[in-house]
């Protein structure tokens, strides 16, 4: 564990707490893509299967349980409790365009040809693009509530912070994971546009609005 990974994980944790806070305080999941949330639940469930047979640490265990549980809880909130506040007509990204290629990539790039390893690879690739339905929705509506942008910023910061973590591990542990690193760089790059608007507008106290 190093400071970058710890801050990345805390940022990830914070993003989920901000999302829950947004839903509970506005009693609405307006502006949140159900598809992105469903993809994240898929990511966590397929990646953390090792919970059942591989012990890393208490920290690792608790975080994995939290990510699986919270992502399922968000799906429950969106699908049942606050269902009327979710508008599927603007959440139109075709997720099959993400799931298919990620499955193919996992078949091509993995560390071992076993089901858990294939699912692990799949989850890494899927995570890197899981935000696209959400960003697509943002693009369509052209604006977002401030709390939603804080959620996205914390989520983007999480994978961005993993990049210095991998550089650090390269030097201190001689560790490199080409699959995670490549996908992580792609994942972070997808946020660049969003980050630009977040830093130049939201953090200056303005509303998140995309130019028409």
């Amino acid at each position: 564990m190093n400071i970058f990974r710890l801050l990345g994980d805390l940022s990830h944790l914070a993003s989920i707490l901000i999302l829950l806070q947004k839903i509970q305080s506005t009693r609405s999941c307006r502006g949140i893509s159900f598809k992105t949330q469903a993809l994240y639940a898929t990511v966590f469930i397929t990646r953390y299967l090792d919970l059942f047979y591989d012990w890393v640490s208490l920290y690792n265990f608790v975080m994995k349980i939290f990510f699986i549980a919270s992502s399922c809880y968000v799906l429950y909130l969106m699908k049942y409790k606050y269902r009327p506040t979710h508008d599927p007509s603007i959440d139109t990204f075709r997720v099959e365009y993400l799931l298919g290629p990620c499955a193919v990539l996992a078949l091509l790039f993995h560390y071992r040809f076993t089901l858990p390893e294939l699912l692990w690879s799949f989850s890494i690739f899927l995570e890197s693009v899981a935000i696209l339905p959400q960003l697509f929705m943002l693009q369509r509506t052209g604006e977002a509530e401030t709390i939603t942008t804080h959620y996205l910023a914390a989520l983007g910061a999480y994978r961005a912070l993993y990049i210095p973590n991998w550089i650090y591990r390269w030097f201190t542990e001689d560790m490199v994971d080409p699959i995670a690193v490549t996908a992580g760089i792609v994942q972070t790059a997808l946020y660049l546009d969003f980050f630009y608007v977040y830093f130049t507008k939201v953090l200056q106290g303005q509303k998140f609005e995309l130019p028409a």
Binding site: D54, V56, S57, Y111, R112, N165, W166, M175
Partner: peptide, 10 residues
Amino acid sequence: EKPRSAHDEL
């Protein structure tokens, strides 16, 4: 065989 590199990450 390749070590399970980033499998200790989240």
